[in-house]
């Protein structure tokens, strides 16, 4: 099915893409993998006259590790994220999240930039990126900026991005060895299904006690939601079943799910508890070394 009445503009580089977006204003939209945008255009949920194609821009689909920082280009495909050796080694939760998404075909086309920019409440990558404290690096005609991902999402399908602002890359500090991160998703079938609930959880353990924790809930609020109280409940606790189950219980109360075709509010609340505990357990299992003693 062809989409009538659109003009495609192949952007030479990101600066060019931004200026095209600026030039055409509200009637323009950037297209990365197109797995969200094309569906919206076909279903007439979105109408744009000018489509700025990012796909031809070189160098934006790379995953690099530099000076302890993971740099993921905005055009990196979900399939690359799922398979990347660097990601699997340093942030396995992110490749886990990517591999639960959609179908092989969609994973080959869809990008990390598109998933984040689209800001769908059930999107699978944001919870993990938030728990990992990612930074979003953007370009726009007025310059570049670094946005902590915690400040990025403002509502369903809404972000702080300006109209002519595009994501260049996503940066994540490689988590220290005494930390672990996990993403757990509940879906109604094993492929091609959106999250009913997704939970990312990170843990830092020092001297046998949790020194930092971050639990992020997906698909249960207008934006990915940090379960602040549940996260806080873990600080100072021993990383064990009891603490994790307790955090799960608290997280249940923090979620604000709605009922829809994928599940009722009550069902989602329950899943939050179970998935939170399981994510924490897996995160704990991923802690590689015994915490180092600080030498003074």
């Amino acid at each position: 099915m062809k989409i009538p009445g659109i003009k495609l503009h192949n952007a030479a580089d990101l600066a060019n893409a931004c200026s095209l977006l600026e030039k055409y204003g509200e009637s323009a939209k950037a297209l990365a993998g197109g797995t969200d945008l094309v569906v919206d255009l076909k279903q007439k949920r979105a109408v744009f006259e000018h489509i700025v194609v990012l796909g031809g821009i070189a160098g934006l689909d790379e995953i690099k590790l530099r000076k302890g920082i993971l740099q993921i280009g905005a055009l990196t495909s979900l399939a690359s994220l799922a398979e990347s050796r660097i990601i699997k080694k340093h942030l396995p939760a992110l490749s886990d999240a990517a591999s639960t998404m959609a179908t092989p075909q969609v994973r080959n086309m869809g990008t990390i930039g598109g998933n984040v920019a689209m800001a769908v409440p059930s999107a699978d990558l944001p919870p993990t990126l938030i728990a990992a404290n990612a930074r979003i690096i953007t370009d726009s005609p007025t310059g570049s900026r670094i946005i902590p991902i915690r400040e990025f999402f403002t509502g369903p399908r809404k972000t702080v991005l300006g109209a002519a602002e595009l994501i260049r890359e996503i940066e994540i500090d490689v988590p220290p060895a005494n930390s672990g991160l996990s993403y757990k998703k509940f879906q109604l079938r094993n492929s091609a299904a959106l999250a009913v609930v997704g939970v990312a959880a990170s843990l830092v353990v020092e001297d046998g006690k949790i020194s930092d924790a971050c639990i992020v809930l997906g698909a249960v609020a207008p934006t990915p939601l940090i379960a602040v109280k549940a996260s806080r409940s873990l600080i100072g606790a021993k990383p064990d079943f009891e603490a994790f189950a307790n955090a799960g219980k608290i997280a249940c109360e923090e979620g604000k799910p709605i009922s829809d075709i994928r599940g009722s509010k009550e069902f989602r609340c329950r899943l939050i508890g179970v998935l939170t505990r399981r994510a924490l357990e897996e995160a704990n299992g991923r802690i590689r070394t015994a915490p180092k003693r600080r030498k003074n």
Binding site: L188, R189, N190, S191, A192, A193, L194, I261, R262
Partner: peptide
């Protein structure tokens, strides 16, 4: 119909 599409009307995939 709330789910007249193959994304929300769930048929088994090869992974199921």
């Amino acid at each position: 119909i709330v789910n007249p599409n193959l994304h929300e009307y769930l048929v088994m995939t090869s992974k199921d």
